[in-house]
């Protein structure tokens, strides 16, 4: 019974995560994140929220 409960919880978490962290869509408020390391960002900037007042383009990229 507890195992079934745990399964239901996992399922609801997975579904719930879809609602809470469904990625940012047009019209949504952007999600803040902290920088683990940064290059060429404005002085003292360590997280996305500091870009308020500017237009900021977030690009996800990879070296591969």
């Amino acid at each position: 019974m507890y195992r079934m409960g745990a399964f239901a919880l996992l399922l609801s978490l997975a579904l719930g995560a879809g609602v809470l962290h469904a990625g940012v869509e047009v019209g949504d408020q952007g999600a803040n994140f902290k920088f683990d390391k940064s290059w060429n960002v404005p002085q003292g900037f360590t997280e996305l929220d500091q870009y308020r007042g500017k237009v900021v383009m977030i690009e996800r990229w990879a070296t591969w």
Binding site: G23, A31, F33, R60
Partner: peptide, 27 residues
Amino acid sequence: GVVKADISKLYETRGIPHSWVLDADGK
């Protein structure tokens, strides 16, 4: 600006590269 961070859960996408633009209010 180039940043190292894992934002895969916050900014979901099926393909890379992908981009989001936020206005002055963060929208």
